[in-house]
Simulated assay, not measured.
Amino acid sequence: MKRNPLIPFAMIAIVGILAVIIISFVGINQRDQIAGGDEGQAEEAIMENPEEIYEANCMSCHGADLSGGLGSDLRTIGADKSLDEIQNIITNGTEGGMPAQQGTLAEEEIAIISEWLSEKK
Score class of each variant (00 low, 15 high):
residue 22 I to T: 10
residue 22 I to A: 15
residue 23 I to Q: 08
residue 25 F to K: 01
residue 26 V to H: 06
residue 26 V to I: 15
residue 30 Q to I: 12
residue 31 R to P: 00
residue 31 R to K: 06
residue 33 Q to H: 05
residue 33 Q to K: 06
residue 34 I to Q: 11
residue 35 A to S: 08
residue 35 A to K: 02
residue 35 A to Y: 03
residue 35 A to E: 12
residue 37 G to T: 05
residue 37 G to H: 08
residue 37 G to C: 13
residue 38 D to W: 09
residue 38 D to R: 00
residue 42 A to T: 03
residue 43 E to N: 12
residue 45 A to I: 07
residue 46 I to Q: 10
residue 47 M to Q: 12
residue 48 E to N: 14
residue 48 E to V: 11
residue 49 N to M: 12
residue 51 E to I: 10
residue 53 I to T: 06
residue 53 I to K: 05
residue 53 I to Q: 06
residue 55 E to M: 06
residue 56 A to Y: 00
residue 57 N to Y: 11
residue 58 C to T: 02
residue 59 M to Y: 01
residue 60 S to D: 06
residue 60 S to H: 01
residue 60 S to C: 02
residue 61 C to F: 01
residue 63 G to Q: 01
residue 65 D to W: 00
residue 65 D to F: 04
residue 65 D to M: 03
residue 66 L to S: 05
residue 66 L to W: 08
residue 67 S to V: 01
residue 68 G to Y: 03
residue 69 G to N: 02
residue 69 G to C: 07
residue 71 G to W: 00
residue 71 G to A: 09
residue 71 G to R: 00
residue 72 S to I: 13
residue 73 D to N: 14
residue 74 L to P: 02
residue 75 R to Y: 08
residue 77 I to S: 05
residue 78 G to R: 01
residue 79 A to G: 11
residue 79 A to Y: 05
residue 80 D to E: 13
residue 80 D to P: 00
residue 80 D to S: 13
residue 82 S to C: 12
residue 82 S to D: 10
residue 83 L to E: 15
residue 84 D to M: 12
residue 84 D to H: 07
residue 85 E to G: 11
residue 85 E to C: 10
residue 85 E to S: 10
residue 85 E to I: 09
residue 87 Q to K: 14
residue 87 Q to V: 03
residue 88 N to F: 14
residue 89 I to H: 10
residue 89 I to W: 06
residue 90 I to D: 04
residue 91 T to N: 04
residue 93 G to D: 04
residue 93 G to S: 09
residue 94 T to G: 07
residue 96 G to Q: 03
residue 98 M to D: 04
residue 98 M to C: 08
residue 99 P to V: 04
residue 99 P to Q: 02
residue 99 P to A: 10
residue 100 A to E: 08
residue 102 Q to I: 09
residue 105 L to I: 06
residue 105 L to K: 00
residue 107 E to K: 03
residue 109 E to Q: 11
residue 109 E to K: 01
residue 110 I to K: 01
residue 110 I to H: 02
residue 111 A to T: 08
residue 112 I to D: 03
residue 112 I to F: 11
residue 113 I to P: 01
residue 115 E to F: 08
residue 117 L to K: 01
residue 118 S to A: 15
residue 118 S to F: 07
